[in-house]
Design a protein around this nucleic acid. Sequence first.
DNA 1: TTAAAAGTTTAGACAAAGCTAAATAATCTT
DNA 2: AAGATTATTTAGCTTTGTCTAAACTTTTAA
Lengths: 217, 217
Amino acid sequence: MTLAEENYLKAIYHLENQSSNEVSTNALAEEMQTKASSVTDMIKKLAEKNMVSYIPYQGVTLSKAGRAHAVKVVRKHRLWEVFLLEKLNFSWDEVHDVAEQLEHIKSEKLTDKLDEFLDFPKVDPHGDPIPDKHGNFEEIDKTSLTDAQEGQSYVCIGVHDSSSDFLKYLDANHISLGTTIEIIHKEPFDNSVKIKFNDVELVVSENVAKNLFLQEA
Amino acid sequence: MTLAEENYLKAIYHLENQSSNEVSTNALAEEMQTKASSVTDMIKKLAEKNMVSYIPYQGVTLSKAGRAHAVKVVRKHRLWEVFLLEKLNFSWDEVHDVAEQLEHIKSEKLTDKLDEFLDFPKVDPHGDPIPDKHGNFEEIDKTSLTDAQEGQSYVCIGVHDSSSDFLKYLDANHISLGTTIEIIHKEPFDNSVKIKFNDVELVVSENVAKNLFLQEA
DNA sequence: TTAAAAGTTTAGACAAAGCTAAATAATCTT
DNA sequence: AAGATTATTTAGCTTTGTCTAAACTTTTAA
Ligand SMILES: [Mn+2]
Ligand SMILES: [Mn+2]
Ligand SMILES: [Mn+2]
Ligand SMILES: [Mn+2]
């Protein structure tokens, strides 16, 4: 698997997880920041290699082998993110871009030794689960802040958008994974949410609420 | 700088260090395991980018910028080798191949944080010096075992050939960096050398002797 | 139930990095 | 000093991954 092929597999994997039906050429082009025609070429090549099943005009789905490979890349990405944060003191908004490069390093021994060195972490800095060496991981039970109930308390356990901008917004407002928040008010007009944590009240926009994952406290 | 370009710069750097005059197309082709015609193409491109100075038929030399970039790649390579050995318990014959990949990761912050995490090591697992963030390093004063004096004692401080085969040979014979050896006899017939260390005598071939670096004890 | 719109694929190019075979320059030998 | 040998470059092709423009399907909506 080349670097480009791995990036496509990973993109298909993420899109499949988001919407459960076949992944369209355009969706993949959007995700990969490339043109639909380039995507068509690549998915043909991946189909040749039995990494995806592809019916023209019908979209693409990962094969068993394709999914397994995608999970390996995701495992490496998330392990490196933990390494950067825990060992090299990167902040959670800095780890992703470097991990995008490190995830393509080919050495099973390196991956497994890194996993051990990090003490077999179960989640990455953004709350996403880390597959073990066999590709197994527990899906984390999470509720988006938009679906939270007024009056109830929750713990922040992850983010959907892990862009630097969003993570810096959370930092600026002192929200991190592990923070316990209480839902004070959900405003029907604009779907903003008033929350309270550490004795401070804060109103967050729908956009923020959608991207913050919670678990009942 | 692309991955291929970086590998060429590094190869030119190593060849310049070995023989001090311009690097020939054929020497570079040999080092890069590629064909002379491919080398010509690449050095033209590097000359375009002012990374090397190149006169057709006269060989190539690194420019200031080219050398600086080569040193950065070497710095990353050697830091990662230390990381793999010290933190992930790789053996010294396993680190090189993975470091060949890791040396191309682009993030100055990563490199410098890694350097700090490793406590600013001065040499890599094969005894080669590690440039600091400014590209400075001390040339290590070393004698090859072929140039050692009979009757004198030395400490092993490095290897020239860091191939897995050679390093495994040293492991099998319990020679590692830091081992003190005494020169018992230099055999003029085949340039083999009888050495003694830890109360054991061992005869090593000229080939082995050439590749082991020493410092007077 | 057709025509427009939207989505997708094909055709033809391009840049990077490699290769082989042929041409040319430099060096070595008589 | 010429001829032979070796080293290097050029020319022309290939593969990977990308692009634009054109063609073709599928979907939407009148
Ligand atoms: Mn990430
Ligand atoms: Mn992450
Ligand atoms: Mn090495
Ligand atoms: Mn080394």
